[in-house]
């Protein structure tokens, strides 16, 4: 078995790659993809600890997390559609009405 800390390292890496995408990408769809990456990093973390402790609830929980991620993406796509309708662009940096 691989030691748990390498799984944690992998999970941290995937999370930070997703975070990098959020911080630097301007396309809204890429934004959503990055969010997906972050969610999956959390899943890796769950499964890793499930293997560490031998308790299966971690893996079951990660299934639910996946289902929730899917639901969230569905709603997110809907929001992006509305955003496009209003601002004529999927660039997240153009939608800046709610500012000072």
């Amino acid at each position: 078995m691989i030691a748990a800390k390498y799984y944690l390292l992998l999970s941290a890496a995937v999370f930070c790659i997703g975070l990098f995408g959020i911080l630097t990408r301007r396309n809204a769809l890429i934004f959503l993809m990055s969010i997906e990456l972050m969610l999956n990093a959390a899943n890796i973390n769950l499964v890793a600890f499930s293997a560490q402790h031998g308790n299966l609830s971690g893996q079951v929980f990660s299934l639910f997390t996946m289902a929730l991620a899917a639901a969230e993406v569905a709603v997110g796509i809907g929001i992006i559609l509305v955003l496009y309708r209003n601002f004529d662009d999927v660039d997240v940096t153009t939608a800046t009405s709610m500012r000072w």
Binding site: M1, A3, A4, K5, L8, L9, A12, A13, F15, C16, I17, L19, F20, L23, T24, A51, Q52, H53, G54, L56
Partner: peptide, 28 residues
């Protein structure tokens, strides 16, 4: 801004690589 993500990764890596877990239990 991506540098913030890199910084977060370095912090987490620094923490995780120092940790010591007991031997993992399998699933039978």
């Amino acid at each position: 801004p991506g540098l913030a993500a890199v910084a977060l990764f370095t912090v987490m890596a620094a923490v995780f690589l120092q940790g010591n877990f007991p031997a993992p239990a399998g699933f039978g």
